[in-house]
């Protein structure tokens, strides 16, 4: 189970600047903590986030352990054409999740 919460307007006028909000389930274990027995708790974070609009990358983020659990990222883009906005989160231990949202631009 790993839900992502994506907020993209369903429709927009061509040229509108729209806000995209994303929340992804992830513990973001920093790698700087230790158990009582002194063993380090290994790092387990999302390191990369990419957003593409009809196949073209429009936004990218490199994340570090200082990003809070359940990473929240919002940004803007210009509504250019109808289609699909895709999201991809990748990280430690082969972590990879995707989500997408449709947008109608008139």
């Amino acid at each position: 189970m790993a839900a992502a919460l994506i907020n993209v307007p369903k429709r927009a006028k061509r040229g509108d600047v729209i806000e995209i909000k994303t929340l992804m389930s992830h513990i973001m274990e920093t790698g700087f903590r230790h158990s009582t027995t002194g063993e380090p708790i290994p790092r387990d974070i999302i390191t990369n986030f990419v957003c593409s609009y009809n196949g073209v990358e429009i936004f990218r983020a490199d994340l570090y352990p200082a990003i809070a659990a359940n990473p929240f990222i919002t940004f803007f883009t210009v509504a250019t054409e109808s289609g699909k906005i895709e999201f991809k989160w990748t990280g430690d231990n082969g972590y990879s999740e995707t989500a997408s949202a449709a947008i109608a631009v008139e």
Partner: peptide, 30 residues
């Protein structure tokens, strides 16, 4: 960047003219 977390990097965001507006939000640990 931050100065007192174990690591100074917090995040890097890559954008361009298609953003329309240069503004990003996130949540961090301090």
């Amino acid at each position: 960047f931050n100065e007192k977390n174990p690591q100074p990097n917090v995040a890097s965001f890559h954008l361009g003219p298609r953003a329309g507006r240069a503004s990003v939000s996130t949540r961090i640990r301090l």
